[in-house]
């Protein structure tokens, strides 16, 4: 059985202008010890998806439908104390900005032991001993001494490591990382991503990593979900997705990426996707990418919503014009 099974999740935000369908029918599952990357541009619903799973959506948002079954329990139905116990204990979570997640007036040690004592019922000495082990596990030098430092004495990367230590302190089976390296420098990012990889194998955790950075998912995730305008538009293994992207959006996104390696980079132009993501108050009636899609207009994809279908084993796509079905036309694939 899968570790996490999300089925037709819907989260809407009520605004004055109408209902914003931030997450509109998202389904996926995550196996034990796997790393799933959810990638997309801002406003695509990737963060709201995991916040919905964790019961952290704030008003005016509301999970209006669907389920998220984690180890036999539907998280969407859980309330109050039950949910809090799952969060932090069975599911760990780290966010983009480690500074706002840490309390600046408490030492790192206090914040770490607090979680241990609350969720695991440890006494003071046990908790402290475990806290040192945890800091060592996330490779913070001089762990025992640094336990008594306040967060501002830590660099950004080290703070994120502390957040990871707190998140894994109760041996969760699932770790959710929402843009964990976006606020970090590229040299620091590499270390944090490698750490996530390492901990995933040691603790046999499932990991969901949310990011806007194609490079980050490519270097960390086993499976990748691409989201656009509140929906999953493509889902595949990392290898298959980057080798043979099927959705016109994924394809265009990959070609829009500036490259570090290659020839003629300076002289060339990037492929740009015209327009911008749709207004979720009033999304396009059928395929949400249709207004920006280079292949739309040849058939009824602007009027009949395409389903998320399995175009080959393990590779799902929501488009009437996936790359492999366009093979007849000589499209300049990568």
């Amino acid at each position: 059985m899968a570790l996490l099974e999300v089925e037709d999740l819907r989260t809407y935000f009520k605004t004055r202008e109408g209902e914003v369908r931030a997450v509109d029918g998202v389904s996926f599952s995550l196996e034990h010890s796997k790393m799933l990357g959810i990638v997309g541009e801002s406003g695509c619903g990737k963060s709201v998806t995991v916040l919905s799973i964790m019961g952290l959506v704030q008003t005016p948002g509301r999970v209006v439908g669907g389920s998220a079954v984690f180890q036999g329990r539907d998280l969407v139905q859980l309330k109050g104390r039950e949910l809090e116990d799952v969060r932090g204990h069975e599911i760990g979570m780290i966010f983009q900005d480690p500074m706002t997640s840490l309390n600046p007036t408490l030492t790192i040690g206090t914040q770490l032991t607090e979680t241990l004592r609350r969720h695991l019922g440890m006494n003071k000495d046990q908790a402290r001993k475990r806290a040192v082990e945890l800091l060592e596990e996330v490779h913070i030098p001089n762990a025992a001494r640094r336990l008594d430092d306040y967060p501002h004495r830590y660099s950004g990367g080290m703070r994120q490591r502390v957040m990871i230590a707190i998140a894994i302190s109760c041996n969760p089976k699932l770790l959710i990382a929402d843009e964990p390296t976006t606020a970090l420098d590229v040299t620091v990012q590499a270390g944090v991503l490698d750490l996530l990889h390492e901990l995933r194998s040691i603790h046999e955790m499932g990991v969901i990593i949310i990011t806007h950075d194609m490079g980050v998912v490519a270097e960390t995730a086993d499976d990748i979900i691409v989201m656009y305008a509140g929906q999953i538009v493509e889902q595949a293994t990392a290898l298959d997705l980057f080798d043979r992207p099927e959705h016109p959006y994924t394809e265009a996104l990959l070609e829009a990426l500036p490259q570090v390696e290659g020839e003629g980079i300076r002289e060339g132009r990037l492929r740009s996707i015209s327009g911008r993501p749709p207004d979720l108050l009033d999304p396009p009636p059928a395929c949400r990418f249709a207004p920006r899609c280079a292949y739309a207009g040849q058939d009824d994809c602007a009027t009949v919503p395409p389903d998320l279908r399995e175009i080959r084993p393990g590779h799902w796509v929501r488009s009437s014009h996936p790359t492999s079905e366009r093979a007849a036309a000589p499209v300049g694939a990568r």
Partner: peptide, 18 residues
Amino acid sequence: ALLAAVPIPNPRRMQERR
């Protein structure tokens, strides 16, 4: 080091990059 740290959008090269 800076160049080595940049994540490359190509999972096939993950091991090599590490």
